[in-house]
């Protein structure tokens, strides 16, 4: 088994864990988005490691990375759009003050 592959996967696992912690524990919308970015970063490093060490001859592996990068950009764009709308209407992007969205 390759040490490089295992270290890359462990890095991905750690970023995923830190991202999950951030997304669940933060009360601010922008900070929650940062957590989601870290979760996706964990996925990215796994995809690159799998492509490099298991299937370097298949370009589809790199294409998956581009798709995840697209998802990261989309998450930011839509998230900031929602944040602006929320801030404009309520003056805050604190999620603990957004309980009325459930009703």
């Amino acid at each position: 088994m390759s040490v490089e592959l295992i270290w890359a996967l462990i890095t991905g696992a750690a970023l995923f864990g830190v991202g999950i912690y951030g997304a669940l524990s933060q009360t601010n919308l922008v900070m929650i988005m940062m957590g989601v970015e870290l979760i996706l970063a964990g996925a990215l490093i796994n995809l690159v490691a799998f492509w490099r060490y298991l299937h370097p001859d298949v370009a589809a592996g790199q294409m998956f990375v581009l798709i995840v990068m697209t998802v990261m950009a989309l998450e930011m764009a839509v998230g900031f759009g929602v944040a602006i709308a929320r801030f404009r209407s309520k003056g805050s992007v604190e999620m603990e003050e957004a309980a009325e969205l459930r009703e």
């Binding site: 295992i6 996967l9 462990i10 991905g12 995923f16 864990g17 999950i20 912690y21």
Partner: peptide, 17 residues
């Protein structure tokens, strides 16, 4: 959050190893 984050990390590392 700590518990879920740590469990995710341990689970993913176990799969990797």
């Amino acid at each position: 959050s700590w518990i879920v984050g740590l469990a995710s990390f341990v689970g993913a590392v176990a799969i990797a190893v």
